[in-house]
Computed example of a mutant assay.
Amino acid sequence: MDTSPLLLVVAAALVDGGGRVLVQQRPAGKPMAGLWEFPGGKIEGGETPEAALARELHEELGIDVDPAAMAPLAFASEGLGGRHLLLMLYVVRAWDAVPEARHASALRWVTPAELRGLAMPPADAPLIGALERLLRG
């Protein structure tokens, strides 16, 4: 039985009108630097996943998202050093401003199929299939 501490993380698949998804590149000096990921971050004590994601999207991208506009899509479970990561992915289709890279090296709008060609963290990659199924249906 794995008794590693659980790390709860939320992420957003921001989907534009053309069915593209926003990803951000992890900056130099951070773990997994250079990899592309869905924006988001850790859930702090006392936060709901939706409140944490709204906070993270404001901090990382400068956008405001109504938690009621977030739809849970999928999750990934992955060992990460001495911890165990549980990553919850939400779909977001409405936000209030143009996203900007505040904590990332770059931002990029890509189709779900293009995600498969990007170097992504191990926990993000398994979520691509759920996005493909959602956006083609």
Rank of each mutant, 00 (worst) to 15 (best):
G81E: 05
A71M: 10
G79Q: 05
P5V: 09
E44G: 07
E50T: 11
E114N: 08
T3F: 09
D2I: 13
R26Q: 03
A113D: 13
L85K: 11
V9E: 10
R102S: 06
G18T: 13
G17M: 08
P5F: 05
M70K: 14
S77P: 01
E60F: 14
L107D: 14
L8P: 01
P126H: 10
H58Y: 13
A97G: 13
G18I: 04
A74D: 02
A94Y: 08
G40F: 11
R108W: 12
T48V: 04
A106R: 15
A101M: 10
V98Y: 05
L57S: 02
E132R: 03
G117Q: 03
E44F: 08
A94D: 10
A123R: 06
L73G: 03
L7C: 01
P39Y: 01
T48N: 05
L107K: 15
R20W: 04
A101S: 14
G117H: 04
T3S: 07
L118Y: 10
P49F: 14
A119D: 09
A12E: 15
L131I: 00
A74I: 00
A130L: 02
L87A: 10
L107T: 15
R133T: 02
A11E: 09
M32Q: 06
D124N: 12
F75E: 03
S4D: 10
T111C: 07
E114W: 13
A123Y: 01
